[in-house]
Amino acid sequence: MIVLKQKPLDWILEAARSYDNILIVGCNGCSGIYQVGGEKQVKNLKMVLEMALKIRFGKNINVETCTLLRQCDRDLVASSLRPLVKRIKENGAIISLACGAGVQTVSNVFPKVVVIPGCDTLFVGMRTKELGEFNELCRACGECILFETGGICPLTRCAKGLLNGPCGGMREGKCEVDPTRDCAWALIYERLKAQGRLDLFLKFRPPRDHRVSASPRVWRGE
């Protein structure tokens, strides 16, 4: 999943205050699942926005809302939002509660409309604890080696992104950068050992070909 967090309300208010018509667009994909920009958060933001703009700036605005199944789906964005975008034509803006891909999909479909990102996109990861701790798991490097590393990505989870780790800073299985965090290579070692595949730990990985993940990346299918 793509992990995100909502931007501070003050930041959103500042960005939105000069508009008379706002369309808040949520996303039931990653953003909704992690309760950052799903249906409920869209409704909450509408309420807060109306109230805060009235109290702070004495301004009444019209707020429309819509939550899409996935905001990174161009066709879905076009078909679902077109009628709503017409309703905010006069000095209007869209607040997107999706990731950067969602924000840019909306902006791509409606290039004349200002889109305000309501969230900061953090990383591709997983919720590891009930109380909402998220960990980055994948850097979308374009060359997956998880089969060889016991399902643990060193490029993402090692602070130095080492492919031949660990570094000399590993301390009793913990990372030198943050001693509360496990060293990815210590985890890989344990996992491979448990799987009886420790020979893979000895495998040397030559320097990465960075062209594979050089931005901006394009995939044209095969």
Binding site: L162, L163, N164, C167, R205, P207, H210
Partner: peptide
């Protein structure tokens, strides 16, 4: 940076 590591 860490384009290379000590092994590479």
């Amino acid at each position: 940076v860490f384009d290379l590591d000590s092994a590479t």
